[in-house]
Design a protein around this nucleic acid. Structure first.
Length: 603
RNA sequence: GGGGCCGUAGCUCAAUUGGUUCAGAGCGCCGCCCUGUCACGGCGGAGGUUGCGGGUUCGAGCCCCGUCGGCCUCGCCA
């Protein structure tokens, strides 16, 4: 029977006791069917939730007959009365569980093939299958929640920045290939034979130009593209909140960025974040956590024991020290009970994980109580510590009987890398990560440059347009690696969520930095001439930040994969199982683009 | 670009050292029955070229090589 489905009265998930006795018109999909031969129950689902429909053969035989033909994921409209469920038959598991709809009329709007997988949360289906049938996957309540929460976060962005006087301005997607950074996605030009656009890795230079144009406060929610290998927290195209402001110092930018995050966490999670966020220097983060995005929810802080361990006769320690490296360790409280198997034998032992990232091994000590309760070291490394050195080590690390000490001895960079990984692994396995904490912090005082031995040149730690600290400007000439940048990252629970910097607004400084980055003036002119020219036309001091929207949605929803925050993501190989993109194109299309494929046709 | 794991029914998985259960289970699906279910229940049934190609073997889901795809990971991600 045709029903005016355009006159829907509410969503399924909104049916509740306030509607008892009222007639409702609902539209949705058949989630489950329970057919008793007589009475038929259907759970009807839409984006807001589920409501139970009841079909009674005695009172509504026509509707009941149709209900018997319904199958999973059929799309229907129904009209009926909301009624309280009989006492004792409520279902507390669904929001509408105290009521049901006695259906008088039903209109079968469309049928469905049997779905490839059940449309429920907590079903384990291969990613590939989920993506191939993404339109079904997105019907799952968890996916609907995720995308709806994403909408709310994005709306909050626009509200917040609009209230702050920011102007949203779009920037080109077809733009110029940038030499540094990630690989570009290229788009061949039809009209300029042999030339290519690149999809933007970020609107970095455009937003700086907009500052030079006088827009003063800019924001954009913008897609960015990077042709690098995917991970579960990385997609080739992703969304950034991009912000830039003129006439500001670092603290002004941080205040704006924090304010937004505080508002989102308050409004979407009811969580009050600190004002202001705590700050930690890059140097401290590396020294104590081994990484520039420390997870401060648990302690396990790194201790430098280079001096003490350098005085042992243990070559694993003394050799790196002799070469200018370091010996550092973490103390694992109660770690003496970790089995040798878990530390160094098992396939996924701590040592195996470290070896996987290049470490030679995992020296460790277990501390036990000796005579008079004095700490005594066990394990093979113990014999290298005289009682005096042992006492020094315990004092330096706070190690007490029952603890374990895990060491790394290598170059300082590697020691940091190994212990950072070890911290994470130990914390996770030993359940040291408290639930419900949101440890936001700013990492500041980044170095401006880092040196790569393989091609013997400096690279920008942040990007080539980041301003050096004013007081470090003289070091650009004398000791570039000592120059600190006006750069900052937001880290939460070990995840880098946002980052930014005050930009260079003086043409001479920018040229000097390009020079350090091994760009000749000619190359700089060719690649960034437009920026340098703009910098010669009264640029305001400016700075900003960018934030990963996808990652934020992931955090807000407690998800561990970016796949669940995108509507239509791609596999690790950049393939879309739904549309089968990328795909070959006609020879004619290629000819028009002045392109010839070097790949021989398969099969 | 490197390393690891994986690919068996629509979905999730099992199948001893290669051998008479070498194709099975749960869910789903189809049919019949069932008037208060919500993991409905009962009876019956259909459904597989074990990703693909080659090799070893008397014999391969299992071993070897190649290939395609997926996931994890190192590199990469200014």
């Amino acid at each position: 029977m045709p029903l005016p489905y355009n006159q829907r009265t509410c969503y399924c998930g909104q049916v509740n006791e306030s509607l008892i006795g009222r007639s409702v018109l609902l539209c949705g999909w058949v989630a489950t069917r329970r057919d008793h031969g007589g009475m038929v129950f259907i759970d009807l689902r839409d984006r807001e939730g589920i409501v139970q429909l009841k079909f009674n053969p005695e009172t509504d035989p026509a509707a009941h007959e149709t209900a018997g033909r319904l199958r999973s994921e059929f799309c229907v409209a129904v009209r009926g009365e909301v009624a309280a469920r009989p006492a004792g038959l409520e279902n507390p598991q669904i929001a509408s569980g105290r009521v049901e709809v006695n259906v008088r009329e039903i209109d079968l709007l469309s049928t469905s093939e049997t779905p490839r997988f059940p449309i429920e949360d907590d079903v384990q289906v291969k990613d590939e299958t989920r993506l191939e049938f993404r339109f079904l996957d997105l019907r799952r309540p968890a996916m609907q929640r995720s995308l709806i929460s994403r909408h709310r976060a994005v709306k909050l962005i626009r509200d917040y920045f609009n209230e702050g006087g920011f102007i949203e301005i779009e920037t080109p997607f077809l733009t110029k290939s940038t030499p540094e950074g990630a690989r570009d996605f290229l788009v061949p030009s039809r009209k300029q034979a042999g030339s290519f656009y690149a999809l933007p890795q970020s609107p970095q230079l455009f937003k700086q130009l907009l500052m030079m144009s006088g827009f003063d406060k800019y924001m954009q929610i913008v897609r960015c593209f990077r042709d690098e290998d995917s991970r579960k927290d990385r997609q080739p195209e992703f969304t950034q909140l991009d912000v830039e402001m003129s006439f500001v110092q670092m603290d002004d930018v941080l205040r704006v960025a924090e304010g937004y995050l505080r508002r989102v966490w308050k409004e979407l999670l009811g969580v009050t974040l600190p004002d202001p966020f705590p700050r930690m220097t890059y140097a401290q983060a590396l020294a104590e956590y081994g990484i520039d995005r420390p997870d401060t929810r648990y302690d396990l802080r790194i201790r430098d024991v280079t001096d003490i361990c350098g005085r042992t006769d243990f070559r694993v320690f003394t050799e790196p020290v002799g070469r200018g490296g370091a010996v550092r360790c973490i103390r694992v409280p109660g770690g003496a009970d970790i089995s040798q198997n878990e530390i160094e034998k098992a396939e996924n032992s701590y040592q195996a994980i470290l070896k996987g990232i290049g470490a030679g091994g995992l020296p460790y000590l277990k501390v036990e109580a000796g005579d008079g309760g004095k700490p005594v070291f066990k394990t093979g490394v113990a014999k290298f510590f005289s009682p005096e050195l042992a006492a020094e080590l315990c004092a330096a690390t706070g190690a007490a009987p029952g603890d374990a000490l895990f060491f790394a001895a290598d170059t300082i960079d590697n020691v940091c890398k190994y212990l950072a990984r070890l911290r994470e692994e130990v914390a996770r396995r030993r359940g040291l990560i408290p639930e419900g904490l949101w440890n936001f912090l700013w990492i500041v005082d980044f170095p401006l440059l880092e040196y790569h031995a393989d091609d013997q040149r400096y690279y920008a730690v942040h990007h080539p347009f980041t301003a050096p600290m004013d007081e470090d400007l003289p070091l650009l000439a004398s000791d570039p690696l000592k120059v600190r940048a006006k750069a900052y990252d937001v880290v939460v629970n070990g995840v880098e969520l946002a980052g930014g910097s005050i930009r260079i607004h003086r043409a001479d400084v920018q040229s000097r930095v390009f020079e350090l980055l091994a760009l000749t003036p000619q190359e700089a002119e060719l690649k960034f001439g437009f920026l340098l020219r703009a910098l010669r036309h009264g640029p305001p001091p400016h700075g900003g930040f960018a934030m990963g929207v996808d990652r934020m949605v992931m955090l807000l929803n407690g998800l561990d994969s970016l796949l669940d925050t995108f509507s239509f993501p791609k596999t690790q190989e950049g393939y879309c199982p739904l549309t089968q993109a990328p795909s070959p194109v006609d020879e004619k299309q290629l000819r028009e683009l002045h392109i010839r494929s070097a790949t021989v046709e398969r099969k």
